[in-house]
C-alpha cells in the first residue's frame, strides 16, 4: 500500500488463462505479446511459466459482444512474476484484461522469493504424514465419530515422526 504513495518498485504476479481457441503453435506469440505489455511498462520479469493446456475445474462463461455466452471447459494457464513501479500496474492490468485471447487474469502483489513449490509440492503432497492422514480420516467421517478418529490418528502420528524428520532434512538440503 505504501508503495503507491512512494512510487517504489513492487513485485507482482499475473496469472492468466488463454482461450483454448488459440492454437497450440500460436501460444508463444500470445505470450510474447503479454510479456511485451509488461516490459513495455518498464518491468523486469523475475519468473514465469509458459501456458499449458489443462482442464478447468468448472466451466467458465464469457459474454461475447453479441450478448451470447462462450463456454470454456479447458484453457491454457500461465503466469508471470515481475517487478514494476506501483503506479503503472493498473495500466498493465487493463491491457491484460482487454486482450481478446485472455480469458481471465489474476493480479497479486507478492514477494521476490519463489513461492511456487511446483514439483516439490507433489512430493510433499505424496508424503502421507501422520497429521495429514488424520485430516483425511476426519474429513471423511462424521462429527459424531470424533473419539474414534483420535484413536486412529494418534498411532499414525507417532509412526511417521521419523519420516517427517527425514523429509524435512531432504528439503533443507535442496534449498542449500
Amino acid at each position: 500500500m505504501d508503495d503507491t504513495i512512494n512510487g517504489d518498485m513492487s513485485v507482482y504476479e499475473i496469472g492468466y488463462l488463454l482461450s483454448p481457441a488459440v492454437p497450440e503453435e500460436k501460444i508463444s506469440d500470445e505470450v510474447d505479446a503479454l510479456r511485451k505489455i509488461i516490459t513495455g511498462a518498464g518491468a523486469a520479469i523475475i519468473a514465469d511459466e509458459l501456458p499449458h493446456r489443462q482442464k478447468l475445474a468448472y466451466v467458465m462463461r464469457r459474454k461475447t459482444v453479441s450478448g451470447s455466452y462462450e463456454k470454456y471447459a479447458d484453457a491454457y494457464f500461465g503466469w508471470l512474476k515481475f517487478e514494476l513501479e506501483a503506479g503503472k500496474i493498473e495500466g498493465v492490468k487493463k491491457s491484460f484484461e482487454t486482450n481478446p485471447s485472455v480469458l481471465r487474469t489474476l493480479l497479486l502483489s507478492t514477494v521476490r522469493e519463489n513461492t511456487y513449490l511446483g514439483k516439490r509440492a507433489m512430493q510433499i503432497a505424496a508424503e502421507l504424514t501422520g497429521s495429514d492422514r488424520a485430516i483425511e480420516t476426519k474429513a471423511e467421517t462424521d462429527q459424531g465419530d470424533n473419539k474414534r478418529d483420535k484413536k486412529e490418528a494418534a498411532p499414525a502420528t507417532a509412526a511417521s515422526v521419523e519420516d517427517m524428520d527425514r523429509s524435512i532434512d531432504e528439503m533443507v538440503k535442496e534449498v542449500i
Binding site: 507478492t110 513449490l117 510433499i124 488424520a134 523429509s167 533443507v172
Partner: peptide, 24 residues
C-alpha cells in the same frame, strides 16, 4: 497436531500449488 506448513518450511502458500491445497 503440528502445523503442516511450519513442518514443511513453507513460508508462503501459493495458489498454483493445487496438490497441496487439495489436501485441505
Amino acid at each position: 497436531k503440528q502445523c503442516y506448513f511450519n513442518q514443511h518450511n513453507i513460508k508462503y502458500i501459493d495458489y498454483k500449488d493445487t496438490d497441496v491445497l487439495k489436501r485441505f
